[in-house]
Amino acid sequence: MTRGVAAGLLAVLYLTCLLFAPAGALDHLPLGTPLLPPSASHPFGTDDLGRDLLAAVLQGGRTSLTVAATATSVALGVGLIVGLVAGLAPPFLDEIVMRATEIVASLPTLLLAILVASLFGGSTLALALVIGLTRWPVIARLLRIETITVCAQPYLRAAVALGASPAAIVHRHVLPALVPTLAASSGIVFGGAILAEAALAFVGLGDPAVTSWGQMIANGFAMLGLGWWLYTMPALVVVMVAGLVAAATLQTRMLV
């Protein structure tokens, strides 16, 4: 599968979630016969309350993908700034920034998220921020190395010799060189964020007012004997999305 196809499928899936599952729509799904196995009319079956599981999965995707997208944006933003600063700054500042980065990298996302969720209640935004604010060090490290590499290139030294301003150099030469790394590392964060959200929701730390994939899997798990589709369907979707993300962003060389 080419990267473009995978990215396209992901975008289509996200848009479908947003379009067909507007906020709060889960509560408005009709209550039909509960616990129907997958069939033509209900491709994913129905849940214990009698709702179409496919519609619920789309609703859950809205939450899970939004958390992942927000977390990835935050991580990319912070990671880019820190990586650039460390890569361009004089060695002593680079040293300070990178040691600080290592401290953040040592914070376990899940534990921190559990702490935040139990202190402030399970809010989707808080969850996204915690994931984003603990996952940027990976990106920062990659971008720092990339920046240092670019700065050592002869054409860049030529640009400096020709009198280009630092801002112009960053804009014209450094940033474009970082794009492939940025894209690849965003995949790591995005996939990780989906899994982290699922894990947190699974243990009951998501926002109780909105459903998410992790919550659906947890709920299906609690009904283990009543229908395999209750947990299998949302779990398959999580695995599929994580796979698509990897296909869309990972380059041939292994990162990290």
């Binding site: 709060g24 509560d27 408005h28 309350l49 709702r51 009951g204 109780p208 007012a209």
Partner: peptide, 19 residues
């Protein structure tokens, strides 16, 4: 509470769960 939310939503009553 989830089933109650689903039953009351058509009546125009939205419930916000606080667990």
């Amino acid at each position: 509470s989830e089933l109650m939310r689903a039953q009351l939503a058509p009546l125009g009553i939205a419930l916000r769960p606080r667990m």
